[in-house]
Design a protein around this nucleic acid. Sequence first.
DNA 1: GAGTGGTCTAGACCACCCC
DNA 2: GGGTGGTCTAGACCACTCC
Lengths: 240, 240
Amino acid sequence: MINKSSPIPIYYQLEELIKDQIEKGDLKPGAALPPEREYAETYQISRMTVRQAFTKLVNDGYLYRLQGKGTFVAERKVEQGLQGLTSFTEDMRARGLEPGSQLINFEVISAPVRIAKYLSIEEGSPVYEIKRIRLADQVPMALETTYISVDKVKGLTKEIVNRSLYEYIEGTLGFKIDHAKQIIESSVANQIESEYLSIKEGAPIMLIQRNTYLEDETPIEVVKSSYRADRYKFMIDMKR
Amino acid sequence: MINKSSPIPIYYQLEELIKDQIEKGDLKPGAALPPEREYAETYQISRMTVRQAFTKLVNDGYLYRLQGKGTFVAERKVEQGLQGLTSFTEDMRARGLEPGSQLINFEVISAPVRIAKYLSIEEGSPVYEIKRIRLADQVPMALETTYISVDKVKGLTKEIVNRSLYEYIEGTLGFKIDHAKQIIESSVANQIESEYLSIKEGAPIMLIQRNTYLEDETPIEVVKSSYRADRYKFMIDMKR
DNA sequence: GAGTGGTCTAGACCACCCC
DNA sequence: GGGTGGTCTAGACCACTCC
């Protein structure tokens, strides 16, 4: 199960192995895992390496530890907010909905002052402005506008946007998206939003602004979304 | 600076030391820290111990690492969402507002089915129902109702609630609050909410339900809050 | 090649829980 | 007392970055 001569780190292999067992149901919520020392013995690896894998799984919410007692499988977070940052597509799939998208605008504009500030670029620099209606099971879920610096992300096209923006940024360009700051507020739909989202003017909506960053804190993307409040709830798990 | 004979773990002492330096400005955002090996040498501790402290600070968003280059201080998250779970009081203080509270109801009721389910107790078991108007700079910010199992948290009184509920649960009772699931949605104020929050009926509000858990996943508290949308935004930092 | 973080080992002792 | 996780050591070699 563990390949010590593989270039894949041992702690990562063990992590995936345990995640698999949890997802398959071999390890059930609340059940105690074999002790760290037993994993070390079984796979002939150091206990510190086992702890590295365990620690990651605890941070990601798969396991929890009780001193003197053992390590246990956490309750399933079914229908719970995803841990970590996800794309709209991943988010909808996790909710059991079929994601869809309708591009309504794709152009290069001069960065307005606020967008420039968020992206740490000069005011007036070229940025892509991508406006989309996001669908879930063919029904409008959100109106979304994405701003990306042309200088940082070159070669973006309508086709790429329609396929997968994140895949292009992470896969093709090799950037590592690391984290995002999100600001969530409640509001009511204006005329434009009500039209695109097929709701009444004045109906409640949830505004989410997301600023996305790479590992070294370079801002890579700003997304402003208006979600239909009757269809969308934001769920999240926070550590103390 | 580091006391090796102290009962406080070395990695934790180092963590606090570096956090202090960042907060004091001795270490500025973007600046490279001395290499791990240098810390180990300076304080005569193992490099693994230094890494343990660094790893925690990276996870908490204070530092970031670039392989082959070094470890750096992350950008300030001033006026950004707090990392982690905070009380209303902590939240308001972080926003530079003076928190306040007005108790409007404190009683023991029979748990309704939904509350019982969230708290993992029998329907009809006794629960405290605590209704409060939460103030920021003396102005209503949110209407908040808290449900807590009487069997799990004994001896709760109005006085304790007015002082600090979390301090009682964590300090006096010794429970360790570990994480919380939050569900955020947009809505409009009904008659009761509009009255307590001093806003018009139909004005946008943000509903937040928080289910709080201990380390071993025991639910300890359910809080339902209605925040004034004109005064409150929810900010959060998420890892990919 | 020198310096950085990334991974890994084979031990050790401590603190806490439960019998 | 025996088993668990929590902390710590003193090394090692690898991968990556920069000169």
